[in-house]
Amino acid sequence: MKYPGRLPTEVSSLATLVVLMLLARLGMDPIPRHLPYAPFPEGLSEAAPWLFLGGALLVLSQRYVQMGALLAGAGLLLKVLGNMPLFSNGRLLDGLTLLLIGLYTPRWGLGPLRAQYCLVYFGAVLSKLIDGDWWNGAFVNATLDYHRPGAVAEALAPLAPWAGWVTMATEAAIGTGLAIPALRPAAVVLTAVFHTGLLVLLREDFATFYYTVSLSACLLFLEWPAVLAVRIPREGFVFLARRSVFTSLQAAPVERGSWQVRFANYRYEGPAALGLLLFANFPVLALLVAGVALVSRRGYGTVREVVLVACVGLAVGVWRWRKQEKRT
């Protein structure tokens, strides 16, 4: 599936979802202080937010996604480079993800984006390996004391050294698994379990990091179909069949089927197809929304949670489609 342009749908979707998530967080950064690592014009730093907004609008137009990602990523990276105090994994990863999407070439494909995420995990593991406080549980205890003070921190304190070792082993496994094609599906599952487990335990999403990593794991490391064909059952989703926001629909009779989306007869490309997958997995989606809302300190309705859940729903839909394809 291709958007106008040469980005695969999963990459365009990632750019769109990351931009949506970042727009939902506009204004959440503290007041920056122009303090670059090496002196560069303050004007560049001041232009960074506008560069990001301009790029974001292009991405959301869905016509110039790659150019938009390039501009938005450049804006985010300039913001990080120009403001030492603002440095964080999350901000840097958002900027690099969008920038790498903007620099996508068909020859290298998803390689650079996948390499980026493997690098994140290997860097994180190395940092922990050389820090004794990760081996003796001191960091884990300090983190639990801050995020879950009282009974939870006390109850988990004896497990703190184990938690450090498990974390290091998990991150090493994720980085390695994402790099090996045969292990990628398992690594994606491990990523989801690990980061969501941290979210539930610590009630902390580490700003945008959790969402960017989760979205990227689903969209960059699973095999997405080149062409997606969707059959709409007569009982439901007919109203969706009649929409043509981005694609032209073929009017054809729909065979009677179950509530689950089966793949035949209709050929949808672009966001309409992805949206249909999302709705087809509604029960799973509903459970995920409820689960995320329960652990989120802000409760229901924040854009970023919805965006994350949408992506997980898409991934589930693709997995189920591929299982069905293998059976037929």
Binding site: Y37, F87, N89, G123
Partner: peptide
């Protein structure tokens, strides 16, 4: 970034090393 990750073995700061908040 590979350079940034390797650099953390030799310096104390954690800029561009994918690990600035690995210590509370």
């Amino acid at each position: 970034q590979v350079g940034g990750v390797v650099r953390q073995l030799f310096v104390e700061d954690r800029f561009f090393a994918w690990s600035p908040h690995d210590s509370r």
